[in-house]
Amino acid sequence: MSAANAPERTDALVQVRGLSTELNGKTIFDRLDLDVPRGKITAIMGPSGTGKTTLLRHITGQLMPDAGEIRVDGHNVPTLARGELFDLREKIGYLFQNSALLTDFTVFENVAFPLRQHLKLPEEILRNIVLTKLQAVGLRGAAELMPSELSGGMARRVALARAIVRDPMLILYDEPFVGLDPIALNQILKLIRTLNDTLGITSILVAHEFAAVGRAADHVYLIAGGKVAAQGTPAELARGESDWTRQFFGGEADGPVPFQYPARDYAADLGFPPSGRTERAR
């Protein structure tokens, strides 16, 4: 590893500086800066399609940015070689927005997969670890089911168990609450908090449910238009000091964030003569 990549101790585990990305000619990020402090839960919120998943993919090196620096535990991710990237990923848990369970394997084997691939554990110990994690997400009884036999919410919880099975230093949750009933949601919320409090795991939480985020997160970033639109503790944001937060948390259609994906004039699209009123589209 080069000197430039040597870990430097800061209290930010993930440091994003000047991140710029364009996908298909659309600007997703425009010189974004963002810090994720160690041992804290940082929530990332923002309108749909704003690039939250893309940001997580940048942080884990699945997607290269056009410009900018992303330091994770001191390593600049875009410059890492594949081997170094894999070493780093072994310390990162990632919950996919669509679960992404391996359809060939049972629930048990899915959760056991990272352990089997990287550690030579005795079967007994491996079993205990896997069952403990499954118990934590309330699915120990489903261990022998195949992923196709799970509901969406159950699959999400199995994916969560898989993401935390190696007790990583950093966990990225991409919308962990979608499709969960209130009971499961509460349990998962508690689990995220507990992992953070007891093991000091740093978490990045992408979610839309502000009530849930408010109970779990230490710090919230609101991303819109390729930049950080607002940030602060959940309480600060809830007070709604800017247009962005007022609109986002108040759930109003009109505001700085357009509800509509950029489009032509609505009436013209439907074949009517243009009306005086135009949609808030750019």
């Binding site: 884990t60 699945q62 894999f86 070493d87 990923r89 072994e90 990162i92 990632y94 996919f96 669509n98 992404a100 369970l101 391996l102 359809t103 997969f113 990272p114 691939q117 990287h118 898989r162």
Partner: peptide
């Protein structure tokens, strides 16, 4: 192809398992 479409290959990448080798 389905593993690609359902992000299973990306999931392996994220678990530090090279889908090319696995």
């Amino acid at each position: 192809g389905l593993m690609r479409a359902t992000d299973q290959l990306a999931a392996m990448e994220m678990m530090a398992v090279d889908p090319l080798a696995y």
